[in-house]
Design a binder for these strands. Structure first.
Ligand SMILES: NC(=O)c1ccc[n+]([C@@H]2O[C@H](COP(=O)([O-])OP(=O)(O)OC[C@H]3O[C@@H](n4cnc5c(N)ncnc54)[C@H](O)[C@@H]3O)[C@@H](O)[C@H]2O)c1
Ligand SMILES: NC(=O)c1ccc[n+]([C@@H]2O[C@H](COP(=O)([O-])OP(=O)(O)OC[C@H]3O[C@@H](n4cnc5c(N)ncnc54)[C@H](O)[C@@H]3O)[C@@H](O)[C@H]2O)c1
Lengths: 209, 209
DNA sequence: GAGAATTTGTGAATAATTTCGCAAATTCAG
DNA sequence: CTGAATTTGCGAAATTATTCACAAATTCTC
């Protein structure tokens, strides 16, 4: 890799990838940057520029063969093999995530679930046994899990995240509202905070009144 | 408003707002763009530029009085009053959201919950009664709810979203993995898709191996 | 109270991102 | 087979976003 691909480009690839998968599921065989762009509200030029960072995947006059482009994106995103994931915190949200059947078909297998509560440890979510948070480091190391979804109460978020780093986790999807402070070269952080997203909306909704 | 504030600036305001609230809860009285920036991994200059779009809220030598800046951001984000929210789809995720006690303190009251399932309609989540999706339009209009969180199965997402628009909803937080096609001047859309966020991570995690 | 230290707000410079525009390749219509 | 229509990939231009750098205001130190 000569110059690193801009992160903003990388952030759009999963969107292209999933839209192409939907098109394929609907029986479509080829598409164009124009069609994809209209579906996503993005300019055709942007899609072509983004893809051109990684190679030449299309054909003039025809556009893109969906199955081929999906395969290419799968490799680029390292989704040509599946990933094991740990869920930390088996409360309302952690349970919903662990029950959700939409991750596995996309290549994310929930392998480990942890909690502190003695009422939960040892019980099952589906066929997953809830493990003691004290076993976090050895279990994650042993299983070689690299990705965690953090669904503990806000007050515990930073401490648990620090443990995750010690356990060798490389990616954390943070569902708490705490902005985590972690070494940036070691862990890839992504924040999913519905309150921020709602406040982003209320800025505009309020204005229109 | 002369020139509209760039959306990327607006998107950072909720992050500032929430961090300031945490600082205040910890008993802190003033802060500076430097301190806030270090906490968030953002440059001090960026924070000052962002805030300067809305006015002059700080003082040379001192920085910002946290309570004052919180009040200003509250007004800017239209969070000086609370907002009613509807949850559409009372499944795993919809239930977790409806049970979650973190929205109300932030000014978002879950007022209405809808589902199609006869097994769920009429039952309660906490003290919320699950309503029939057939009543969506009249109920939302009557309650004057402007914001919806969409947690129905992917296959139903677009159809339900179209109904929400007819009901006069102005903001949709989309938890499904379907990219919705809606009139952009009418509805403010925000997408929360964990699979995309995980794939954004796997791009980088794979590379480091 | 004088001088050092902080810190803001902002114009200018720099950097990043998006859009434009077009040659080249390909397909389509008749 | 010919001319019109599509569509890509990409360099260049335009736009947008971030950082720099500094005067001015304020506080802190002794
Ligand atoms: N429920 C939602 O819809 C929702 C939405 C957005 C964000 N969140 C965020 O997700 C987080 C969890 O929310 P929730 O509603 O599931 O809360 P919850 O209280 O239902 O669940 C938290 C779980 O974490 C466990 N826990 C506590 N400390 C722990 C530790 N140190 N290690 C491991 N497990 C620990 C608790 O025993 C509990 O089971 C919160 O930070 C919340 O802000 C939740
Ligand atoms: N569970 C998760 O952790 C999770 C995570 C990310 C995304 N999602 C997304 O959230 C959505 C819901 O997931 P879930 O796990 O809660 O699924 P679920 O099947 O548990 O719940 C969906 C609910 O929607 C109801 N429903 C179906 N059609 C409806 C309609 N037309 N109108 C109103 N209600 C209707 C169903 O009766 C069900 O109660 C899915 O699109 C999924 O991709 C879920």
């Amino acid at each position: 890799m000569q110059t690193p691909i801009p992160d903003i480009v990388v952030s759009r690839l999963p969107v292209y990838f999933q839209t192409l998968q939907t098109m394929q599921a609907e029986g479509q065989h080829t598409t164009s940057s124009k069609e994809l762009g209209e579906k996503l509200g993005i300019s055709a030029a942007q899609i072509r520029k983004d893809l051109s960072q990684f190679g030449e995947f299309g054909k003039q006059g025809t556009g893109y063969i969906i199955s081929f482009l999906i395969d290419q994106l799968k490799t680029i995103l390292n989704m040509d093999h599946s990933w094991d994931v740990a869920v930390i915190g088996a409360g309302n949200l952690g349970k919903a995530i662990a029950h959700y059947h939409g991750f596995a078909p996309q290549g994310f297998n929930i392998k480990l679930v942890f909690d502190t509560s003695p009422d939960l440890i040892g019980t099952n979510i589906g066929d997953l046994n809830i493990l003691d948070i004290d076993e976090l480091i050895p279990c994650i190391k042993k299983a070689g899990v690299k990705i965690a979804m953090l669904t503990v109460p806000d007050a515990a978020a930073q401490a648990v995240a620090d443990e995750l780093v010690k356990a060798g986790i490389e990616g954390i999807l943070n569902y708490t509202s705490t902005p985590l402070n972690l070494p940036p070269r070691v862990v890839h952080l992504r924040h999913s905070d519905p309150v921020s997203q709602l406040q982003h909306m209320t800025y505009y909704i309020g204005k229109s009144k």
